[in-house]
Amino acid sequence: MTAHEPAPTPQAADKDDKDDKGAMNHGMFLFLLPKVPLMLRVAILHMLRVSQQSKYLDLRTELIIAVLRSLTNPSRPLSISETQKLAGQAPKLKGNIWVSTYSCPPPPPGETGLQEAIAKAIDGLRNPEAPPPAYQMPEPAPVEAEWTGYRANATAESRLPNLFERELYTEMMKEVKSPVTVLYFHGGAYYLLDPANHRPTTKTLAKLTGGRVYSVRYRLSPQHAFPAALMDALQSYLALLYPPEGAFHEPVQPEHIVFAGDR
Rank of each mutant, 00 (worst) to 15 (best):
P132V: 01
G124R: 00
I97V: 15
G124L: 00
K120E: 11
N127S: 11
T101Y: 04
P133K: 01
L125S: 12
P105S: 07
S103K: 12
A121P: 00
I122P: 02
A119H: 09
G113P: 00
L125P: 00
P131R: 11
A134S: 11
P132G: 03
N96A: 10
E111D: 15
T112I: 12
T101S: 12
P109V: 06
A119W: 02
T112S: 14
G110R: 07
L125D: 08
P131M: 05
V99A: 13
G95Y: 06
Q115N: 15
P107Y: 02
E111S: 10
P106S: 09
N127A: 03
P105K: 09
A119P: 01
A117M: 07
P133L: 02
W98F: 15
S100E: 08
I97T: 14
P132A: 14
G110D: 13
N127E: 07
A117K: 12
P128G: 10
A119V: 06
P107L: 12
P133S: 03
W98V: 06
K120T: 11
L114T: 09
D123H: 05
S103I: 10
Y135R: 00
P108R: 12
S100F: 10
G95Q: 11
E129W: 02
D123C: 00
I97F: 09
Y102L: 14
T112P: 03
I97E: 12
P128E: 08
E111P: 00
L114S: 08
R126G: 02
A130K: 04
P108L: 14
K120I: 04
T112Q: 13
P108Y: 06
N96I: 03
A117W: 01
Q115D: 04
P128K: 07
I122A: 02
T112D: 15
I97K: 04
P132M: 05
C104R: 14
W98N: 09
Q136P: 00
S103F: 05
L114K: 06
S100R: 14
G110H: 07
P131A: 14
Q136F: 02
E116G: 01
E129Y: 05
P133W: 01
K120P: 01
A117P: 02
T112N: 15
Q136S: 10
K120F: 04
D123Q: 04
S100G: 11
A134Q: 07
K120D: 05
T112E: 15
A119C: 04
Q115G: 12
C104F: 13
G124V: 01
P108V: 11
P108K: 13
A130F: 03
C104Q: 13
Y102C: 13
G110M: 11
L125Q: 11
E116L: 14
S103L: 05
G124D: 05
G124E: 04
P128Y: 09
Y102D: 11
I97G: 09
A117V: 05
A117S: 15
N96E: 10
I97C: 10
G113K: 10
P105Q: 08
L114A: 06
E111R: 05
G110F: 09
P107S: 12
P107W: 02
V99N: 13
R126Q: 12
G113Q: 15
G95L: 11
P128M: 07
P109I: 06
Q115R: 14
N96L: 04
Q115H: 03
A121I: 07
R126C: 04
E116P: 01
